[in-house]
């Protein structure tokens, strides 16, 4: 099942990178959103297979990380980390969306290439560096 998660993480990650490299910011925001999904699945895989590998054929599922549910619990730490991450990525997404709204209102565009020229510093000129004498 780790393989499944790995494939999912790979695909979602690839899609999110593709969107991040896109030309307009709405896609970028979605890319960031998907990015967190991929990361969560990656962390989740670190808790190992969700079942106990049996000696002969039988391989019972592990139990959720709640004390008293069974002998073999799933590793709780990745879950705690993901839980934190989900909430943080919610905050990041909301913030990013606000930035999108504000950017669109200020500049009238969401094209990455157009925005790049917006604040581009002027090319350096030699006149900027006046000879300093000691």
């Amino acid at each position: 099942m780790t393989l499944l998660l790995a494939i999912c993480a790979a695909v979602v990650f690839a899609v999110s990178v593709y969107l991040l490299l896109g030309r307009e910011l709405k896609g970028v925001a979605m890319g960031v959103f998907l990015f967190s999904h991929a990361a969560h699945m990656g962390i989740l895989a670190m808790s190992g297979q969700p079942f106990v590998k049996g000696a002969g054929g039988a391989s019972p599922m592990k139990e959720p990380p709640i004390i008293g549910l069974g002998e073999h619990l799933v590793d709780p730490l990745p879950q705690a980390l993901i839980l934190t991450s989900i909430v943080i990525s919610f905050a990041v997404t909301a913030f990013l969306l606000t930035l999108l709204v504000t950017t669109h209102r200020r500049t009238g565009t969401l094209e990455v290439n157009a925005l790049a020229d917006e604040d581009r510093p002027a090319p350096p000129s030699r006149h900027q560096f006046i000879a300093t004498e000691a």
Partner: peptide, 21 residues
């Protein structure tokens, strides 16, 4: 490019999960 990055991530996840196992 995106595919290559995804592949790297997937491979890392696969290894990490296997080690935990």
């Amino acid at each position: 490019f995106a595919g290559a990055v995804g592949l790297v991530i997937g491979w890392t996840v696969l290894h990490g999960g296997s080690i935990a196992d």
